[in-house]
Design a protein around this nucleic acid. Structure first.
Length: 905
RNA sequence: GGGAGCUUAGCUCAGCUGGUUCAGAGCAUCUGCCUUACAAGCAGAGGGUCACUGGUUCGAACCCAGUAGCUCCCA
């Protein structure tokens, strides 16, 4: 069999992914093993794979594959969320292309189109995850609008409503006039914007002097018609004479009062604040405090309504320009200044957010936040890295109620029912009008039938003739138009994917819940992670997961967040195409310290692909060996060393995984393979070209290789699976796959051997250096004499040194060798006889330099040891170390002194 | 304006309880090698006032205070 010169990912990826699928390796069903569960942070169903997903899902796949290889029953549940705003926008766009307008459709018709869209495009992102190698249990794929998951949302709503945790109220919300929906604070992006500050004159009432006016500075002149008052600081002496007076709103001439409140900053603008309760949150609060009227002059789409009296029908921004002209013409505009301030934009539509008073549904947070905070503070849920605990606590202690309604159609419709119009007597034509209090006009329940029953009963209780049967016309019962926030679905995700609401005692939920690790972005720590914890506590009395691994934001080299709109993000699928999935996975992890943003650069993927190739070539080498059964094993020490080195690396990898330091664990693996295995071990044992290898070395090496494949697998699943099945490793049954192989147990570590080999490597490096400085070719064999002062028996390592440094004759000696190049490794002396004259001047300089360093070093060590307070305070083992340093340095100095004496310098 | 965090080699980052010959890794750079596993490679080398200023300590990249710069969150 001929082996490709380089590793070609394309030839393996598809093959093995479908093989894994066919053999059900991703599938999980409850059994007697310990479960290990991850629920995917459901990507937005409209989404396509971006770098953030790549990072996030690579991490999850590494964790899940590792768990699988540690004998756990690993279950990774995939799925998507329905992303109401984003999806609705996509559907509206699709309809527009077909020449259909949303407003011409009924809700049902629109939803039919929406589902059509979802079926067609909703699976794209999950298909992309497969390219990355994600080993999700696809049979468990969930969607937040699946029947059971939706039902859970509705039931949850009703449950919380009955508990008094959901209520309806007027609130100042963030209104997206383009999307025509409320958006949460988290979906508002604040940006600094250049604006204008308009100074507007309000004439004082009853004053004969036309010059007597006050000036108000505002960025929003188009809202003056909604003003309810002018507010000044009571301590502001400039305006004391105006307390209790009234002023006229320019253009419309309406009279409003001057009120006083500390809230007004005296040195901002003119110190006069126009109070517009309907269009500013702070003004709304002021309005409540002073009982001011609320005048809403804007329509849902951001145009002015008839309450504005002027500029009716104009868009708010057009109105701003026009009113500035009108004010100017009427002489009410004093001046205009440039001004910078923060403006909120909708994350979805980029429209300027309008503060708007609206009837919304809210979920009370304070009560649920308490236990959710405690879980994190007492460590039942760990945030990784733990620096996020502060942020989390700050949020949870200052939590605000959650506006859960969205003015959209795509999502779970709020299960609140309203009764409109009159109550109708069945066998009569007389309509009976019934006055209901506002609170009684709606009822929260699951079905329309229940609602009808409820209202019928309510009316009966109101003293309507009990004997007659009454009915409420179906048409009179109207369900709330709005849907709940998508997060109101996804906060249930860890429970609802296992159907834990409808069937709270089913085998899956009992087995998989609480899940183990959640891997997500810190940006959604509050509005997703925290709420899942709340839901977990509320509905199951238990945490939803044990560990939350917070990944960083993927940024470009310049530190900008990678985004489609900036165009600075590579297409992940292109990356996979170019570097292979394994290369990209390694590339992502190489630059992803936990919780810190990562400055991504394609060169990391290149490095990943290079690593894959390195492994491929190591494989090629071993694969090419011929075995001669008659040969003795000359590599016993090398084999023993690598076995120990492997165990040591495994220990470090394990420790790094335990702390979720994935990039460190990967780097440990990288160095184990590249440096220890390829650069040292294989070079130690590699037979000369076209020479056979002995059976024992061959067998041991293949065993090492197989173990290396296992350790690599979570990071590089495709390459490892491909190699795993090569005949080099013997016969494999169909289900004997790397993906389900068990990681090797960590054996004992002979630290003496490891330490001695480090010195041997030092010897080899010194010889190579000597060749370099003396310009001796690698091909020219050299002789080496070792004078061991440390007690290390270099005879044991002769074969290794000879092989790696091309030594033809090796001898241990008791005395110094004259006329030879010498160097130190640890405190041991080595000599290379050299035909040419050794330059005494250069040699002298080299030795003096070393001596100088050692003397300096010794001085600092002696300073410590001679310091009474050090000796009194330092731990005994520290002192021991210092004494060892001293002894070593002194030993080396002695040797150098001798050598200097021999050179007579 | 309030809060949190960060600053270590050209780049990306480790550095755990203050104490290993502690200033590290990978990449990049430089030098020499086309040594039949790998030039996507091999062998070697250079590179840092640990942001700055003080303090605590026998001892500080690490602890404390202040300063500067950057980032994020909340208003």
């Amino acid at each position: 069999m001929s082996i490709a010169k380089t590793y070609i990912p394309k030839e393996t990826e598809e093959k093995w992914y479908s093989y894994w699928l066919q053999h059900g390796f991703f599938k999980s069903v409850p059994d007697e093993r310990e479960p290990y569960t991850i629920v995917i942070p459901p990507p937005n169903v409209t989404g396509v794979l971006h770098m953030g997903h790549m990072l996030n899902n690579t991490i999850q796949d590494v964790l899940i594959r590792r768990a699988r290889m540690k004998g756990k029953n690993a279950c990774w549940v995939p799925g998507t969320d329905h992303a109401s705003i984003a999806t609705e926008a996509k559907v509206v766009a699709m309809l527009k292309e077909r020449g259909i307008s949303k407003k011409d459709l009924t809700r049902e018709e629109f939803l039919t189109y929406a589902w059509e869209w979802k079926e067609k495009y909703g699976g794209i992102i999950l298909e992309q995850l497969k390219k990355l190698g994600a080993s999700c249990d696809w049979d468990r794929t969930k969607f937040t609008m699946d029947e059971n998951l939706s039902e859970a949302v509705i039931d949850t709503f009703i449950h919380l409503y009955k508990k008094g945790l959901i209520y309806r109220g007027i609130r100042m919300i963030n209104w997206d006039p383009q999307g025509k929906t409320a958006v949460s604070d988290e979906e508002v992006i604040r940006k600094e914007v250049n604006q204008k500050l308009y100074y507007i004159k309000y004439k004082v009432d009853g004053d004969i002097d036309p010059q007597n006016y006050i000036v108000v500075a505002t960025t929003r002149p188009e809202t003056i018609m909604a003003d309810s008052a002018i507010c000044v600081n009571p301590n502001d002496s400039r305006y004391t004479h105006l307390h209790g007076k009234r002023v006229y709103i320019p253009l419309i001439g309406k009279k409003i009062s001057i009120i006083t409140d500390d809230y007004v900053t005296m040195d901002f603008g003119t110190g006069c604040l126009k109070v517009t309760p309907a269009h500013d949150l702070n003004d709304y609060e002021l309005g409540l405090k002073y009982g001011l009227p609320v005048i809403d002059i804007l329509n849902e789409d951001g145009t002015l309504n008839e309450r504005a009296e002027i500029l009716i029908g104009e868009d708010r921004f057009a109105a701003r320009k026009k009113i500035a002209v009108l004010l100017e013409e009427s002489g009410a505009l004093e001046k205009v200044e440039d001004y910078k301030s923060q403006v909120g934009f909708s994350e979805r539509t980029n429209a300027v957010i309008e503060p708007k008073l609206s009837m919304q549904w809210f979920c009370k947070m304070a009560e649920m936040a308490k236990p959710a905070l405690d879980y994190v503070l007492n460590g039942e849920i760990k945030l990784i890295p733990d620096k996020f605990i502060n942020t989390y606590r700050h949020w949870m202690e200052n939590v605000r109620d959650w506006n859960i309604s969205r003015q959209l159609w795509w999502g779970q419709q709020i299960p609140a029912w309203y009764v409109d119009g009159d109550y109708v007597k069945v066998d009569s034509d007389d309509a009976v009008a019934l006055q209901l209090d506002a609170i009684e006009k709606y009822h929260v329940c699951k079905t329309k039938e229940e609602a009808i029953e409820h209202f019928a009963k309510l009316f009966q209780e109101r003293g309507f003739d009990e004997k007659s049967s009454y009915r409420i016309a179906k048409e009179q019962i109207r369900q709330d138009e709005d849907v709940v926030d998508t997060w109101f679905s996804s906060w249930l995700w860890p429970i609802s994917v296992f159907d834990g609401f409808k069937d709270p005692n089913n085998a899956d939920i009992n087995y998989y819940y609480p899940t183990n690790d959640l891997v997500t972005a810190p940006e959604i720590l509050f509005f997703w992670v925290a709420r899942m914890i709340m839901a977990g506590h509320e509905f199951r009395g238990e945490v939803p997961f044990r560990n939350v691994y917070l990944t960083g934001i993927v940024r470009d080299k310049q530190g900008r967040k990678m985004s489609k709109s900036l165009g600075n993000s590579p297409d992940p699928l292109d990356l996979i195409e170019n570097y292979g999935a394994d290369g990209v996975r390694v590339g992502m992890l190489l630059c992803s310290p936990a919780g810190n943003d990562l400055m991504f650069d394609e060169s990391y993927c290149k490095q990943g692909a290079g690593f894959a190739n390195k492994i491929w070539n190591a494989f090629k080498l071993v694969k090419g060996w011929e075995v001669d059964e008659n040969l003795d094993n000359p590599n016993a020490v090398a084999i023993e060393w690598f076995g120990n080195k492997f165990n040591q690396a495994l220990t470090e990898i394990e420790a790094n995984f335990a702390q979720y330091r994935l990039s460190e664990a990967l780097m440990d693996t990288y160095k184990l393979v590249w440096d220890d295995f390829c650069a040292w071990y294989l070079e130690m044992i590699k037979p000369a070209y076209q020479h056979p290898i002995d059976k024992a070395t061959y067998t041991a090496t293949i065993q090492f290789f197989e173990n290396i494949l296992k350790v690599l697998h979570p990071f590089m699943p495709f390459l490892t699976e491909e190699l795993w099945h090569d005949e080099l490793f013997g016969e494999r049954t169909e289900s004997d796959c790397c993906i389900v192989a068990q990681l090797p147990a960590i054996g004992e570590i002979n630290s003496r051997l490891l330490a001695e080999i480090e010195i041997v490597k030092d010897v080899v490096t010194s010889i190579r250096n000597t060749r370099k400085t003396k310009q001796i070719s690698d091909k020219e064999p050299l002789e080496l004499f070792a004078k061991s002062n440390s007690g290390i028996n270099y005879g044991e390592y002769e074969a290794i040194i000879a092989r790696l440094a091309n030594i033809s004759k090796f001898e241990t000696v008791a005395d110094k060798v004259e006329g030879a190049i010498n160097f130190l490794a640890s405190t041991d002396e080595f000599y290379i006889p050299f035909s040419e004259e050794i330059d005494p001047v250069a040699e002298c300089a080299r030795l003096k330099k070393e001596q100088e360093y050692l003397l300096g070093f010794l001085k600092s060590v002696n300073a410590k040891l001679g310091n009474e307070r050090f000796m009194a305070n330092a731990k005994p083992e520290i002192i021991e170390v210092e004494q060892k340093k001293k002894a070593d340095a002194e030993a080396k100095l002695t040797i150098i002194d001798e050598n200097l004496a021999a050179l007579a310098c």
